[in-house]
Design a protein around this nucleic acid. Sequence first.
DNA 1: CGACGGGGTGACGCTTTTGTGACAGGTGGC
DNA 2: GCCACCTGTCACAAAAGCGTCACCCCGTCG
Lengths: 232, 232
Amino acid sequence: MSAKILVVEDEPAIQALIAVNLKRAGHEVIAALDAETARRHVDEVLPDLVLLDWMLPGISGLEFARRLRGDVRTRNVPIIMLTARGEESDKVQGLTTGADDYVTKPFSPKELLARIQAVLRRQRPQAAEDALEVSDLRLDPVTHRVTAAGRTVNLGPTEFRLLHFLMAHAERVHSRVQLLDQVWGDHVFVEERTVDVHIRRLRAALEATGHDALIQTVRGSGYRLSAEAAEQ
Amino acid sequence: MSAKILVVEDEPAIQALIAVNLKRAGHEVIAALDAETARRHVDEVLPDLVLLDWMLPGISGLEFARRLRGDVRTRNVPIIMLTARGEESDKVQGLTTGADDYVTKPFSPKELLARIQAVLRRQRPQAAEDALEVSDLRLDPVTHRVTAAGRTVNLGPTEFRLLHFLMAHAERVHSRVQLLDQVWGDHVFVEERTVDVHIRRLRAALEATGHDALIQTVRGSGYRLSAEAAEQ
DNA sequence: CGACGGGGTGACGCTTTTGTGACAGGTGGC
DNA sequence: GCCACCTGTCACAAAAGCGTCACCCCGTCG
């Protein structure tokens, strides 16, 4: 889960420290040493999250946060405040101004990352969590369980995601590349044929319940999960 | 006396008004504009109190309240209903569904706060929570005792809370991060792997009674407590 | 008929994820 | 201060999955 993160921190050393860690975690960092620069950046890139130092020269973090909340476009961008230890009243004030979380300095990079993940997770409107059903195959994202005609089907993580995707987009044909993008992730680089292997593993797992025919091969195009039995 | 308050209200203006006032009074506000969001928040943060608008788009306040009462974890979370003036019959119905109090719109912030304080005060002496049972494992939140098939199981505080949470959300898969948030607390920072260790300690404690298989590992996702025996 | 492109399969190192035992604090009772 | 009990982290072992290959089969098409 990577995101564009605007880091507003006037202390260059800390700014750099943060940047290094966020980047290592795969996030995109936009650095700003003062509120003025930050404001410009906000306009230009519309970050996914703002890391905001509480003590800024000139305009305070409080004020900056307030402006973010005032603008329709940035109203929903989550804010994490950086505060010096023990400024309890600031924390309270910060949270009331609309910060989503805070981290006290000094902080461990790990903690910072964890909080960022937490806030981003809270933010994303988690795709529909309802169980999927196709023919009497049933996949429940919440319990992470797959059953076919009552019997439980055991799948590895990748097969689970693959089936999840196929069931969510049943009847449609997906090329190997599409499947790689959707199931493995956009940036991951693996052989296209790898998809074949996982399809096979998935079929093998479903075979025990006689549902392996659900996944059909469309020669030259890709794969499709269909409720209609594949005619031959 | 500050508390985490979930505000379910679809009108942004009112939502904001409420939020400002609650925050000023030192409460932590979790805002939700619709029932769907609210439900997610409930799962994540387990609020101390729910402020619930009667007229919600989609699922009604009544229905939402009923669901809160249906879940073991939220059974005892007090609910204050917000109703439009003059919907007397609604009020009655609301109270019978389990709302603890109601406030008619328009309301004064002072009145709202007063009612909240009152309900919280009334609530404090934790109403007796029901014991949880999964397969013949039994956990009693009141006596803080766990028994499996009659025999008592000895747990440390953390393991107890962990088991409590898992039992309250049986069948569901929880990531390590979720468990840390829920069992350790939002602002505690410990390694994710720490969860593994506690899961192991929990399993070890249950092993004596042969119930250790209740806690299953879902590779790549987390852990799950399930009555169904783990397949293999 | 033989070359060919596509897809199915079984095997196999390798990496990632979990399970585990040990350990260095920390806390509260005494 | 000493003990008994918990806790969070590590390092290492054990699994469980993963991505690739090589090889096979099969329908197509010149």
